[in-house]
Design a protein around this nucleic acid. Sequence first.
DNA 1: TATTTACCTTCATATCTGTGAAGGTATGTT
DNA 2: AACATACCTTCACAGATATGAAGGTAAATA
Lengths: 127, 127
Amino acid sequence: MKVNTDVERCAERRVDASRVAAVAESLVDVDEAAALAEMFRLLGDPTRVRILYALLEAGELCVCDIAAVVDTSETKVSQAMRLLRSAAVVRNRRDGRNIIYRLDDAHVRLLLDLSREHVAHGEDGER
Amino acid sequence: MKVNTDVERCAERRVDASRVAAVAESLVDVDEAAALAEMFRLLGDPTRVRILYALLEAGELCVCDIAAVVDTSETKVSQAMRLLRSAAVVRNRRDGRNIIYRLDDAHVRLLLDLSREHVAHGEDGER
DNA sequence: TATTTACCTTCATATCTGTGAAGGTATGTT
DNA sequence: AACATACCTTCACAGATATGAAGGTAAATA
């Protein structure tokens, strides 16, 4: 439980020290945070977002059809799929010369659904 | 409904044209995808992720306490908050010389909860 | 008023990321 | 075997991003 003590920090009496310690204790650890950030980062690109929503709706699609649906180049799709694949967000299988992708995670599906509601409703969270 | 026709595309007979059209029709549009990507992008950084989880657990925290909990510099926190603020992920209020932040979106809260389950369970989505 | 505290905002920069060009691989067809 | 199709990978680079240094506000305190 190492906390920054060497550098700039507001006066110790001013911060709610006990709460800070409590939150720091139960906070998601560095590795987990890195994994989460990495996952969000992959969703943080318009092309990849559209691809994922396309898969969410279609179930399965080959690269070629993804490119058509999302209206982009196959190269771009290919690169996107490599990233998403290595993060286990999607999985693929071969069917003849086509390689068919689908979402490989129920959580991601929920995440996409939930997120769409978020932007749909705009900023009416709870005010 | 403009679809790439000018460039590289797999043979028309090979793709499931009707399904492609149907999915393209109901697909999240470009602007919405951009908004979603922008939001995910903001979550795609370890420091910001930790800050958000800290707020999720603590409810409210001043910049100074956030820096202590997340174990980083105030400058870094400040920069992060600016981004998150402008995207309405967090809101702030002033209390004396402290500026206190909290999550400003129920959807984001759910998103964070859900995502944590995701990485916790690893890859047991639905196989 | 002068000072301190807590936070914010430029600015410069090293690093990372998305993108397309070009070429490679694997499967099916002739 | 030769060729075509569908997809992948490497490479180079313009543009975006995170980061720290340095300095600027705004509120409390002396």
